[in-house]
């Protein structure tokens, strides 16, 4: 990244925190609903030094990785079936879009009734959050393999299952990467929805807990953590991966 852009971004952040401090100093809002930047910073600092936040983060990431891995596996299988079989796509494709449009928080009551206030209920919500978007992208990936590649492979004696593994799968990698990035984003949101209503542990649970004890500084601190993790993982892991792949595949 260009240094100039970095400076602009830092200045912007400083300005936002400055305005925040000014509003706080004006004293129009009660501290209980409007904490100072410093108290939020202290909440962050204490949260990390006591290990509370780290424990919550660890639990959240455990839920996320198990759930996301399952979502990717299920999504890929469903996507490949729909992408390869016109029958299957005509029959079930539309329902997939319907399922995808359901906000993940809607699954939380269902998960709690099925699995109680357990970690598995949270993971279940994460799986549902990521599976459908993954499946939709894998379906697109398989359907977007250029027919010209398949024809060229046939003239080289490669067809059927061998063509699937040597041509169709590598050809679909860019869409697959988009699927991964979106599955991560949806799963991350689903995770927070699930944890907020869970009995812990997890970052979402810590957030609900802080709310119960009217600790606005902790609430804001946890929201900051959630935002930073979301942005960092998207920017430095998935967007980067996707961009590299698209470059190589000559798509951008």
């Amino acid at each position: 990244m260009n240094l100039n852009i970095l400076i602009k971004r830092i200045l912007f952040l400083v300005a936002v925190v400055g305005i925040w401090q000014l509003i706080f100093s004006a004293g129009v809002l009660e501290e209980i609903i409007f904490p100072s930047p410093l108290s939020v910073w202290e909440a962050l600092y204490n949260g990390f030094t006591t290990g509370d936040f780290l424990g919550a983060l660890g639990a959240s990431f455990r839920h996320l990785f198990i759930g996301l891995a399952m979502a990717i596996a299920f999504g890929t299988v469903i996507g490949v079936i729909l992408g390869k079989s016109k029958q299957a796509d005509e029959t079930a494709g539309m329902y997939l879009i319907a399922m995808q449009s359901i906000p993940s928080i809607v699954w939380v009551p269902l998960a709690i009734m099925l699995f109680g206030f357990s970690e598995f209920a949270v993971i279940f919500v994460v799986v549902l959050g990521g599976t459908f978007v993954m499946a939709l992208n894998v379906r697109t990936a398989i359907q977007s393999v250029p027919p010209q590649f398949i024809r060229a492979a046939r003239t080289m004696g490669t067809r059927g299952i061998s063509s699937f593994f040597r041509v169709e799968i590598p050809s679909s990698v860019p869409y697959f990467m988009t699927g991964l990035r979106l599955a991560w984003a949806f799963s991350w949101r689903a995770l927070m929805a699930g944890e907020l209503l869970s009995n812990g542990p997890g970052l979402g649970y810590s957030l609900a807990y802080a709310q119960d004890y009217a600790r606005m500084d902790q609430v804001v601190a946890i929201i900051v953590i959630i935002g930073v993790i979301g942005a960092v993982v998207d920017q430095f892991v998935f967007s980067k991966l996707e961009k590299n792949v698209r470059n190589r595949w000559g798509l951008s």
Binding site: P146, Q148, F149, R151, A152, A153, R154, T155, M156, G157, T158, R159, R166, V167, P170, S171, V173, R248, W249, G250
Partner: peptide, 30 residues
């Protein structure tokens, strides 16, 4: 049916972008 005893060159090169030049050429020889 199609087979490697007839090599085909299309109007669009139809090379595989995930392989480098040499791996594209070895593709039918694997």
């Amino acid at each position: 049916q199609a087979g490697p005893d007839r090599g085909m060159v299309f109007q669009q090169p139809s090379l595989f972008p995930w392989l480098n030049v040499r791996d594209n050429v070895t593709f039918p020889l694997k």
